[in-house]
């Protein structure tokens, strides 16, 4: 078999661009889906029944659809419903945010429910409002507790961004597969792509583990 690894070097700028898009997609998705997850979680915990039902419906809908379907849906159907043409990048971002917000909402809900009722009461007894108790007492503790879960969501997300390559977003997967089809260097490009994903993903996972040790609070 005749292998030619120089193809990766030849196309290094295209690969680098793909890496940049993948990283940006991950960062933007999480930057939106963390507050998004909190909002959906608060809706699910609301004392107002319609809001609670809306939150639950959101989570159950988006959590149980394959992400790739969401990506296609955002690309083909969304522009028909709302009259705006988004760039492929923004379309991919929407699909990812819808999905990850649903997961984050469940993660936050588990975290918030794990904080015992007494903490809530201690805040209320000082005269705090429900919102202040949530913001100052419950959420900060919950976030520390769920950091490992958010971390694995992050690492999954980093890899799952590759699904947006199907709508021609120029991420790492899309660019690598483009190079493959132009050069016919299948084994080389798939291996290089795997190596890049792994090399980028592993330190992220380690970093979040470290954050957990650093910021984790014991009782």
């Amino acid at each position: 078999m005749n292998l030619d690894w120089t193809v990766a070097w030849q196309y290094r700028f295209m690969l680098a661009e793909g890496v940049l898009v993948t990283v940006l997609l991950t960062v933007f998705t999480m930057a939106i889906a963390v507050p998004g997850g909190i909002v959906v979680m608060l809706a699910r915990q609301s004392r107002f029944a319609p809001l609670r039902m809306a939150g639950t419906a959101y989570v159950e809908f988006f959590r149980n659809l394959p992400l790739i379907l969401l990506v296609y849906w955002a690309f083909y159907v969304l522009p028909m419903i709302v009259d705006i043409q988004l760039s492929p990048f923004a379309t991919g971002l929407v699909a990812l945010c819808l999905n990850v917000s649903a997961y984050n909402a469940e993660t936050f809900r588990a975290g918030v429910n794990s904080i015992r009722r007494g903490q809530h009461n201690a805040g209320l007894a000082l005269g705090m409002s429900q919102w202040q108790v949530m913001g100052r007492i419950v959420l900060p503790q919950a976030v520390r507790r769920i950091l490992p879960v958010l971390a694995s969501t992050w690492v999954s997300l980093f890899k799952d961004t590759s699904l947006v390559s199907v709508i021609a977003v120029g991420d790492l997967a899309h660019n690598a597969l483009q190079i493959r089809s132009q050069t016919f260097r299948v084994l080389e490009m798939l291996t290089v792509m795997a190596a890049i994903y792994w090399c980028l993903g592993y330190p992220q996972a380690k970093l979040v583990d470290w954050m957990h040790r650093r910021f984790g609070v014991s009782e």
Binding site: G123, L124, Q130
Partner: peptide, 24 residues
């Protein structure tokens, strides 16, 4: 009403059996 209860609560101090200090 819960929203008004807090104006009364802040005029009373409460100490709990399990302390309930904020661990963070």
């Amino acid at each position: 009403a819960e929203s008004e209860a807090r104006h009364v609560r802040r005029r009373m101090g409460m100490v709990f059996q399990n302390f309930e200090l904020f661990p963070h």
